[in-house]
Every structure is written in C-alpha cells, then in structure tokens.
Amino acid sequence: MLQFKVDTDTCIQCGECAKDCPYMVIEMGEDGFPRAIADREGQCIQCQHCMTICKPGSLSILGKDPADSLPLKGNLPSQQQMETLVMGRRSVRRYKDEPVDSDVIARMLEISAHAPTGVNNRGVLFTVVDDAEVMTKVRTRTMEGLGLAVREGKLPEGLEFMADFVRLWEDKGVDVLFRGAPHLLVASSPKSGPCPDVDCHIAMTNFELLAASMGLGALWDGLFKWALTMILPDLMKDLGIPEDHKVGYAMVFGKPAVKYHRTVQRSDAKVNRVTAI
C-alpha cells in the first residue's frame, strides 16, 4: 500500500510530483490533483521524491508526514563548507582510548543510510562494533586467526605481507589492522542486488564525511576487509554478516588522538573532457 494522500486544501496543483516520479507512478487527475495510478503502484521504488518536491507539503506517501521532514532551505552547508569538509577529511590512524556514545553512533548510521542505492534497494547492512570489550575480542580473534594462517602457511597469494603485521602485533603489540580504534563498521549488501559494492562504498563515504563533520576520525580498513573475507570466514559468520551478503568495505572510527589544522593541496585531478563525439 502506497498510502498516497493529498491535502486538497493546500495542494497548488503544480504537477511537480507527477513530473518528478522516476517510474511514472503518479498522474494529475481530472480534478487537477495528483493521484497514484492503480496499476503502476507496484512500480514505486519508495524514493519519496514526490513528498520532498511538494513545496507546500501537501503530499504524503507510505504513511510519512511531510511535517516530520527537515526543511532544506537555510539548512544546507555552503559550497565553501562542503569543499573544506571534502578536502579536509583525513584518514585517521591514531585514536583516543575512549568510546563514542552509542546513541551518537546510532544516529550516524541512521543518517548514513540515506545514501543512494541502485534502484533504491536500500539493502546495505551496517555491522557495527560499538562496545569496547567486543572490539577487543574482534581485534584478538583477528590477530590470532591471522597468526594461525601464517604458521600453517595458509595466507592467500598476494596477502603474504600480513605475516609482517602479525609479527608486529605479537612482538611489539603494534595494531596495524585496527590502529587501536575503539569501533568497527562493516558494510555489506545482498549479492543479488544490482550493485552491492557500490552501494556499500557510497554509504561508507557518507559515514566518513559525517564523522569528519562531528570531529570524529575514520579509516577505510581494507586490511581488515581482506582478512575477514579471504582468511577468516568464521569471524564473518560470528559478526552476524549474512552468507548471502557481499562485504563492500570495512572502516574503523572513533575519537581522534590527532588534530589536523588545514586542507592538503592537490591539483592532480584526472579529467577526460569530452569536447566532441
């Protein structure tokens, strides 16, 4: 049920909702008001474009009240603020030994889930470790599992360098894989989806930028992703990641023990500008 409703007292009959519906589920009725086309309701991908484009807030769908949405006017960051955020985010490899409040993490994940996904499938699953004791166990299990793989000669081809990280951990307590971060985030999505890898990457990018805006640090953790998906399948199962999911990426995050003061300077954008075809 789309629960498509229009307040005819406030609707200005502009037709923007019908024009913007990506799957042409909405049409303007003979009375001048929008309506859902009965035999096309099954085509709706629940993107809510119709509700967000309605200027007076006259349209409701899926039981959503437009009054509960955040207004965009006056609330968006300036171009300069976005430029600074994008250029100023850093890969953080030094963390304070203190957790981020679980309610803050929950809110970050809720916001990050607004990332676009293929055909709006919204299949990304965030597997998060927000408990310090659990994070310690994950770190220990990972390094013990890698150590066993090293001793049994079972490191996959191309990942032989993992043995160096195991030695650093066992001999000096140096945590190369997790960098001592208090939290871990793994994004996965059903393998049957249209683009599981891309969906996860976009969602994680949202999370990283949101973390940077809040003064938190994050690090894309390809080392742990390789360890998890190529060496430690039992750990992936214990983390509760479904078997029919593809792990897009992993990330560690927390309160940084380092402070950066300015953006880097780069002018090496690779651009292929098409001027004729």
Results as ranks from 00 to 15, higher is better:
233 P>Y: 07
226 W>M: 15
28 M>R: 05
155 L>V: 13
168 L>H: 02
106 A>N: 04
231 I>Q: 11
165 F>P: 08
154 K>A: 05
110 E>W: 10
250 A>S: 13
50 C>D: 03
267 S>A: 15
110 E>P: 06
246 K>H: 07
127 T>E: 10
136 T>V: 14
212 A>P: 04
22 P>R: 14
26 I>H: 08
68 D>M: 10
92 V>I: 14
253 F>W: 04
75 N>A: 11
75 N>Y: 07
77 P>F: 10
1 M>C: 06
192 S>C: 06
29 G>S: 12
36 A>V: 08
259 K>W: 05
223 L>N: 04
102 S>I: 14
167 R>A: 14
203 A>G: 08
252 V>R: 04
51 M>A: 08
103 D>W: 04
161 F>K: 09
86 V>W: 04
255 K>Q: 08
58 S>M: 07
231 I>E: 10
20 D>E: 12
229 T>C: 10
100 V>I: 09
174 V>L: 08
258 V>K: 00
35 R>P: 10
99 P>V: 08
151 R>A: 14
205 T>N: 14
189 S>K: 09
21 C>Q: 00
49 H>M: 03
119 V>G: 03
19 K>S: 04
30 E>L: 15
268 D>L: 09
23 Y>D: 06
9 D>Y: 11
235 L>P: 09
16 E>C: 14
89 R>Y: 05
205 T>S: 15
36 A>C: 08
120 N>V: 07
226 W>H: 15
170 E>F: 00
196 P>M: 13
115 A>I: 04
101 D>F: 09
83 E>T: 11
203 A>Y: 06
108 M>E: 10
